[in-house]
């Protein structure tokens, strides 16, 4: 999805298109209307006394298409906005972060491939670390501390205090702790270890770079 016109600023006219944003918007709406019509092609429209599943979607698709057409017309007859610049870094990392969370929180399979269910313990930090790279100002150290402090906070809040059935860690983790520990005890110990790690990272790397803000303090309060 790259743009027709790079850069914003005073509208620069090229050719008959006077409002590139309207043009693009119109095209998108037309495409959407066409898609809806195509998707409902096999469905029954019914009659007024017993409307079929397709009646409303079809009318709506036509209406959406018409608004798209109107926008297209305006794009040539009326001055309007140019297209803004599209930025790829933000969306790509944000989406990657969310997807990483989705496939690791519990076992997920696409066809033959499947991911192990790693629980919040891994899914949370993954979302933060990958998503965090969406901004060019990223600092890995801060993200690590953020991940190591927010994740145990959520684990305790959701898994321990509220008893929500959100997967917290891979079942195997229990094997690393004494056998007579309950699931809750393991959860608390893991959270404590992560918090300690966050403090360690914070203290160990404090001198190297002047962080403008106190990360651990803010994050704990969310």
């Amino acid at each position: 999805m790259s743009s027709l016109h790079e850069g914003s600023g005073p509208p620069q006219r090229s050719g008959p298109v006077r409002a590139p944003q309207s043009l693009a918007g119109g095209v998108v709406l037309l495409a959407l209307g066409a898609l809806a019509l195509w998707l409902t092609r096999d469905l029954d429209q019914g009659s007024l006394s017993s409307m079929g599943p397709a009646m409303l979607p079809r009318w709506l698709a036509v209406a959406v298409g018409l608004t798209g057409l109107a926008l297209l017309v305006f794009a040539f007859t009326k001055d309007g906005e140019t297209l803004e610049r599209w930025n790829l870094r933000g969306p790509v990392f944000v989406i990657a972060g969310i997807l990483a969370f989705a496939v690791t929180i519990r076992p997920f399979s696409f066809g033959t491939l499947s991911t192990p269910g790693l629980g919040l313990l891994f899914a949370g930090p993954l979302a933060i670390l990958i998503g965090g790279y969406a901004t060019p100002e990223v600092r890995l150290r801060d993200l690590v501390i953020l991940a190591l402090s927010l994740t145990p906070f959520c684990m305790i809040l959701f898994g321990d205090l509220l008893n929500l059935p959100i997967p917290v860690f891979p079942q195997a983790l229990t094997g690393l702790f004494p056998a007579d520990w309950s699931q809750k005890a393991v959860l608390r110990a893991t959270a404590a270890i992560m918090t300690a790690a966050a403090v360690l990272v914070f203290l160990a790397t404090r001198g190297r770079r002047r962080g403008p803000i106190d990360v651990a303090d803010h994050s704990g309060r969310i």
Binding site: P116, L118, P170, Q171, A172, T174, G175, L176, S182, Q183
Partner: peptide, 24 residues
């Protein structure tokens, strides 16, 4: 991650029936 998934495989086969249930 790899280490933990490996442990997961082992643990799943290890603990079983007679003490059931040992966790929620």
């Amino acid at each position: 991650v790899l280490a933990l998934t490996a442990v997961a495989g082992l643990a799943a086969t290890g603990a079983q029936a007679q003490n059931y249930p040992t966790r929620p």
